[in-house]
Each structure stands twice: as structure tokens, then as C-alpha cells.
Computed example of a mutant assay.
Amino acid sequence: MSASLIYDLAPIGSIVAWSDGTPRPPERFKKKLAAWKTRNSQGRLIRKEGERSLGANSLSPEFMLHEGDLGANGVIAIRIHRTFSLDSTLTFKVIERPALGSVRVFDRAGSRAELVHLAVDRRAAEEWLTGHGHPHAVLDEVTADEIAADHIEGRAAA
């Protein structure tokens, strides 16, 4: 599916894969494999941002995926995020949607909010918040209405 369909249909918290359609190179080709992995991977959908202005320029809508973390001994040193505009030529697929009743923890309220954690329920989300420094966090439960909204004109975001 296209990037615009991911933007329109996939709920925040979904696992989304992207691909350029090329076959994976053999392991022995380290540089080719590393380049392929940047164009063929997956991550959790953590933010959608609509069209906005930057001075005289207009920026198109985009979405951000959290691909992974780098660190050691429980300390995250670097977070790997990928941002895709709606005109991306890559192919996308929803691998997994957030479960009904799970709770998303956003770093703040508003249109620039970013998902920082997906908990199985409200109690787990509140427990997670006590150990992490997000003073302006907002909790958002995944509802049946949202899951039903994934189906538009008989199509599902998968």
C-alpha cells in the first residue's frame, strides 16, 4: 500500500513495514545489505503530522516510525526514527495493529504528540509512567470505534 494509505488508515501504535521491492542481497555483501536494510525494514508508527507551513514553504503530511534503539545495559543512547512523506515511492504494509483496550502513552497533547510507549492496559501505562520522565504525558486508549475506522469502503489497512 502507499504511504498516503498508511497515513489515512493505520492507527498510531501499528507496526508498519516498508520495502522498495528489491530482493535481499546475500549476507556476504555487507555494504549492499546495509543499504538494502535502510529501504526494507519495519517500525512502530509513532506520529502522523498533517500539512504545515514553514515560512513561505508548505510541507506535505508525513508520518514517523520508530525502527529501534541503540544502547547497552538498559540505557538507550540513540533512537532510530524514520520519517516518510506521502509521496514516498516505497511500498508499505501494516504488520500489526494495537490491540483493543491497549493504551498509548504520548509525550504531550496536540498535533505534534509522539508515541513513547504502548501498554497492554491503563494500569500498565500508569505504572510505566511512574518510572519514566514524561511530565506532560497523555494516555489514549485504543477503542473499538478506532479499530472499526480502519475499514474504509471494505478495505483494511493491511
Rank of each mutant, 00 (worst) to 15 (best):
P11M: 12
G13E: 12
G13C: 07
I15R: 11
V16T: 14
S19C: 10
R28S: 08
F29H: 13
F29W: 05
L33P: 06
T38Q: 15
R39A: 15
N40S: 11
S41M: 07
G43E: 01
R47D: 04
R47Y: 01
L54C: 12
G55I: 13
N57T: 11
S58W: 08
P61E: 12
P61V: 02
P61G: 05
E62P: 05
E67Y: 03
L70R: 15
G74N: 01
G74Q: 04
G74I: 00
A77Y: 06
R82F: 07
S85W: 00
L86A: 05
T89M: 01
L90S: 06
T91R: 12
I95C: 07
I95W: 00
L100H: 14
L100A: 00
G101N: 00
S102K: 04
V103P: 03
V103E: 07
F106H: 13
R108E: 12
S111Y: 03
R112C: 04
E114D: 06
E114F: 05
L115M: 06
V116W: 09
H117S: 15
L118A: 08
A119N: 01
V120N: 03
R123D: 03
L129I: 13
G131K: 11
H136I: 09
A137W: 02
T143M: 06
A144D: 13
E146C: 02
E146G: 11
I147H: 03
